[in-house]
Write a protein that binds this DNA or RNA. Structure first.
Lengths: 107, 107
DNA sequence: GAAGTATATAACAATATAGTTATATTGTAT
DNA sequence: ATACAATATAACTATATTGTTATATACTTC
């Protein structure tokens, strides 16, 4: 995952409401109508949060009749968490810049 | 860490430039003047990113003469990553809401 | 103390985000 | 087909974010 991709995935999680949604889905699948009364925001707002989570691969949707059930992609969540402990190694980039004299020596 | 706190910490990381800064600091401490030429943004922009990271406890600053060196708080970074795999358990909240009849049964 | 360098803050602009209400879409049931 | 329920999308608003330039602060050196 590149920096842009990781930043985007983290943004998907960096909202209290979406974190609550993810925490709920961590317990069990939910449909939108169950989530709406829990957060004091409108149904369209919840729907947009779900779209955002889906766009980042964090949830999967399954239509069952009238309802759309969302389930958490736990692997994806773990992957994002892991990526914070395995950030890209910029050593080579640093070295290249150093050779080009672009790095300031401050001491 | 509550949802608001975690969301705030994730927001601190949810930016490509700040992720690059964190990745660099993961290799070695840097001062602002070293970071500026790397990202194609102004010195004040870098300075504000450092303030944001500092506010979330992700970096520590140490003044050395004219320079301010920033170092990564690796424990804090690990803590934020870990918190994604240990999200608050909302089972009890779900149960309470269920008893109050606030949860819709969709099936 | 005057000049120079590194960093931080202030004021502002452009864009992104998260909510709203209104409406469209999709599926169920009569 | 009509009416209803659940969800999604559109248009909009308010606020947050991320950058800019100009200026202030902190420290060093002459």
């Amino acid at each position: 995952m590149d920096f842009e991709g990781l930043a985007d995935a983290l943004k998907a999680l960096a909202d209290p409401t979406r974190l609550r949604i993810v925490s709920l889905l961590n317990i069990r699948d939910c449909c939108v109508c169950e989530l709406v009364p829990l957060f004091g925001i409108s149904q369209p707002a919840v729907s947009k949060h779900m779209s955002r989570l889906k766009a980042s691969g964090l949830v999967k949707e399954t239509r069952k009749g009238m309802w759309v059930f969302y389930s958490l992609n736990k692997d994806r969540l773990a992957e994002i968490g892991m990526s914070l402990s395995h950030l890209p190694d910029l050593t080579d980039e640093l070295r290249q810049l150093e050779q080009k004299g672009l790095l300031v020596k401050c001491e």
